[in-house]
Amino acid sequence: MKTDEQVRKALQLLEALSAAKGQRVDVQAVCASLDLDEAELDSCLNLISNLADRETGARAVVDRSNNEVVLHGDAGRLQTLRLDISEGMALAAALRDLHIGKEAADRLRRGLLPLDWTPDEGSSQLAGGVAFGPWFPVLREALEDGVRCSLTYRTQGEREARARIVDPAAIETRADAAYLLAWDVEKDAERRYRLDRIADVQLTEDSAERHPYRGESTADSLARTGERVVLAMDAGTAAGIDWDGALPPEPDVHNPEEVRVTVYVGSRPWLFDQVLASGGHMRIVEPQEAADAFLTYARSLLQ
């Protein structure tokens, strides 16, 4: 390691030891956390063990045994440092993307960021890829405090958002979006709500209740509750499908140039849009009623 890297890692190790319960950490965990191999860890421990002050007689005492590193006494304890520029940039991006309220964000910046550095508020160099929406902090508060909420939300296909009473359970993320897993009190059922489609959240006076969440994957949920539709398409188009509710393609016994893909869908409009976007490469074959509904939907777009 270069000098600055050795110093940085030794300081991080002292921070971790100072804050840990009993001032002891597991060797493997701290190596993983600080991205050190065992030789580098021993190098840091060697540097720390040599710390001594002749005037006060203080000395840092650290040792490694039984897969643990332990900091003894108070002399070696290190108060947590402010964030460095790299961490500050990441924090600034996260505060912006998560819509953390101005007052809380200001306190976090004043308490944590380097005092001489101001993150560029218009910083346009980092993008996290998923929108958490402006109601994320309120939802987080509702989750922490176990509060029932009134959620104004527009389901796909609905023209207007409408209010519903929900008990929040968790924030879930996927590559394309962040969702609130919650219980719709009126429907008495589990639902997922895209955070960027939530128009309003109000905390109620009531506490959220415990509910029997299934804890199943999206694919399993769709297979259980979704509508079964069979599509015909060429193998190349089938290879590009990564939908949660899609099963592996099967040969089409009637047409060797095509395969059949069975899909479980929660929204017909969503499926119809994917078929439209394929520009004729996909065809709904079962049920016939779904194919007929698709034609009605597609024709309506041209009107």
Partner: peptide
């Protein structure tokens, strides 16, 4: 709020801020 927000933020696959935000989280706790 920030600790739990960071956990949600970092659960997005491929987030480029994983390393520095993990460090921020550790400092908040420490």
């Amino acid at each position: 709020l920030l600790v739990h927000a960071i956990d949600d933020y970092l659960s997005v696959p491929g987030n480029p801020l994983a390393r520095p935000l993990s460090s921020v989280r550790r400092k908040l706790v420490a």
